[in-house]
Structures are given as structure tokens and as C-alpha cells.
Design a protein around this nucleic acid. Structure first.
Lengths: 205, 205
DNA sequence: AAGTTGAGCGTACAATTGTACGCTAATTTA
DNA sequence: TAAATTAGCGTACAATTGTACGCTCAACTT
């Protein structure tokens, strides 16, 4: 890569990072202005256009990147689970850790999921879908579920986790343990219930 | 009430209604400007302040009102359920109907739940909490659950319903049936799982 | 009847926004 | 080496925003 392309990439990163850094509990992506992001990245407002068509394009980039980051971190956590122990418990703990170290990555997914841009919502849904289908396939193989049941179960699990994540962002660290415990309980409910429904179906056949 | 107070109340309503009417899939409350709302309500921008301290105060009013509306409609639906039939099924169907006839009421709750104002998030959480605790008490009495378990179960149910509501807003009407079916399946999972966990606990004691 | 209150208005202003346009200077290509 | 490309800048402008201030006049109080 030439010197020029390298520098361009560097500036582009600066823009993405600047945007991520400006996110907080009080500041959503849609409340960021092009000028603010450019300022934080240390370039002139008009230079922004050399990298992104508009703020929308930057935002979609962030959603894609964020989803990828999250999935990578969760995958690493799953490896830990293979050493033994409750899959649910370990996954929840991993998720909380991921959340604490990358709050803004989670925030943009969380917020834009119910945002005003259809493109954003679709992008977030796509990321969440990755989680769901990964989990559904795992469950289908592992626990011998109907595809339909596995799908519904996986979706319920992911939704509950995601939702707890949103709450976790809003509370003190000391309260997070209780939240994690309740989440584990809920996930067990779903898993147990799915198992029971599956058996009822099997018996009937 | 005097003529004067009456007129004031009327204008106040015009403001609230104007704001609700401007909400849509593409337009969130936080993207509304004070001037837009005033314009739609047919008053001068500065007159807005005679009714609300700022847009925040209007928004909180809307959340409270919206939550109330939703609860009232759901309660009406529950009466229908008392005539017999699956509580889950009827509740889900009611919810979908409520959603279709008041999309904007649901939207503001949905969006501000993950919004950037702590006050808004708290207000929405309060509304959702009403649903949860109503349901938890019902389940605790009806199905003889531990308070802890009843709470976790109720919360899981409400989250799943709420979440499905968000998806429902984004799809065609014809696809909503499938969504409702899957939701019912998920709710049954939770209910069945909670029952199983409860029995396991009872046996142990 | 006289005095007070307050809802609504119009004007005004400083901020901030997105972005069009044309320039510069360094890199890349030929 | 000469020409072409392009990342980044500065200037400029029209929109829009929230809100301070002071006025009016109908409704209410005394």
C-alpha cells in the first residue's frame, strides 16, 4: 500500500474512532454532527467527504465493525466454556465482560436497533441474526431440536441477553452480579422449557 | 374550570398531539424540534414555554401518557381472556392489535428506552415495570411460584413481548401472524421452563 | 369598576449545522 | 521529468435551532 493510501486509511480510522469515542450514555450516534466528528478526528469538516458520503455511511460502518468485534469476543469466550462448566453461566459472564470493556460498541447496536433509519435497523438486525443463527445451529445439533424450535429458542436467548446488556449499562457495577444471576435463571427457563416442549413433541410422534 | 384554564388545557393537548403525530418510523421524539411541534400545534414557538419547561418535559409527559394508554388497552384485552382460552395466545393477539392502532405510542416507549436521556430511560422503565409486576403478582398467585422465580419469569415474558412488538412495527401485516406464532412459542417455553424449575425446587425441599 | 394575571405573539440574536466551491501541495502515474 | 490525481483546507452561505425580551388583550380577582 502506497504512502498515500496508508495516510488515508489512518484518517479514516481517526474518524471512526472519534465517533466511537464520542458515544456515551448521554450521546447517541444520531446526535453526533459531522462537524463534531471531524473536529475530534482533527480534520476540516469538508474533508470528511473524502472518506464517507455522509454520516449515515459512517454509522453503518460502525455498526458492521461493532457487530464483528462483539462476535469475535464472544467466540473467544466460548472457547473458555469448552474447558467445562455451564455454557450458560460462562457465556453470560463473558458477555458482561465484553460489555464493560466495549460499552460504546454495544451502545450503537442497542440504540440504532430502535433508531429512525431503516438501514441502521436492518444492519443491526443482521448482526444480531449472526448471533441467533450461530446459536440455533449449535442447539439444533447439541440438543436435537426441531429447526423451528431451535430457532425460537435461540432468538429468545439472544433477546434476553441483549436486553440484560442494556440494563447493565445503566447500573452500578456492584448491582451487575444480581442482574447476571437473574439473566442466568431466565436463560435456564428458556432452555428447560424448550427441552420440555421438544420432548412433548417427540412423545406425540 | 374557567374559560381560561380550559383554553390552556386545549393548547396543551394540541402540543402533545402534535408531537405524537409527528412520530413515525423515520422520526423519533428526540429528532423533533420545539419549533416543529409548536408549528404543528398552531402556536408561536415561544408560547411553547407557557406549557412545558422544555422539550424534555413534553417528552416525559408523552411517555407517562403512552404507558397509561398501553396498560389500559391491555387490561381491556385481559378481560376478554377471562372468558376462556389460552391466556398467552389472547394476550399476544391483544398486544398486536394495540400496537397496530397506536404505533406511535409504542414507538416512543421503544425508542426512549434506549435513548440518551437517563430521565427518559427511567420513565420508560417505570412503565414497563408496571407490566412486569402486574404479571408477576398474577403468576405468583396463580401458579404458586417463588417471588423470585415469578419475577424473573414475568420479566422474561414482558421483554419477549416488547421485543416482538418492535419487530412487528417493521414488517408487513401479512408477516405478523408468523411473528405472533413464534412469540407464543417462546412465551410457552418460558412458562413451561419456569414451571419445571419450580417443581425441581419444590422436590428438593 | 379597577387592577392583576398570564397565554400567546413578534422580533431578535447568537449558535450550529451541512455542504458547495475552488485552492494547495504532495503523491502517484506515465 | 511532466502530468494527473486527490486528501485536506478555508471561505462562504442559507437553514434551522433554542430562547430572551417585551407587548397585547382577554380573563379573572377584588
Amino acid at each position: 500500500m502506497g504512502v498515500r493510501a496508508q495516510q488515508k486509511e489512518k484518517t479514516r480510522r481517526a474518524l471512526v474512532d472519534a465517533a466511537f469515542n464520542q458515544l456515551s450514555a448521554e450521546r447517541s450516534f444520531s446526535s453526533l454532527s459531522l462537524r463534531e466528528v471531524a473536529r475530534e478526528a482533527g480534520i476540516a469538516p469538508t474533508s470528511f467527504y473524502r472518506h464517507f458520503k455522509d454520516m449515515n455511511e459512517l454509522g453503518l460502518t460502525m455498526v458492521d465493525e461493532g457487530g464483528l468485534t462483539l462476535r469475535q469476543m464472544m467466540r473467544k469466550g466460548r472457547q473458555r466454556a469448552e474447558a467445562g462448566g455451564s455454557v450458560i453461566r460462562i457465556s453470560v459472564d463473558t458477555f458482561i465482560e465484553v460489555l464493560e470493556s466495549n460499552p460504546n460498541v454495544f451502545r450503537i447496536l442497542l440504540h440504532e436497533r430502535s433508531g429512525t433509519s431503516a438501514a441502521f435497523r436492518a444492519a443491526v438486525e443482521r448482526e444480531i441474526e449472526h448471533f441467533i443463527s450461530e446459536l440455533a445451529h449449535y442447539t439444533e445439533a447439541q440438543a436435537k431440536r426441531t429447526p423451528e424450535l431451535a430457532r425460537a429458542q435461540a432468538e429468545a436467548l439472544v433477546i434476553l441477553v441483549f436486553n440484560a446488556g442494556a440494563s447493565a449499562l445503566d447500573i452500578k457495577r456492584s448491582e451487575r452480579k444480581a442482574l447476571a444471576d437473574q439473566l442466568v435463571l431466565q436463560l435456564r427457563m428458556v432452555a428447560t422449557g424448550a427441552e420440555a416442549l421438544q420432548q412433548k413433541m417427540d412423545n406425540r410422534a
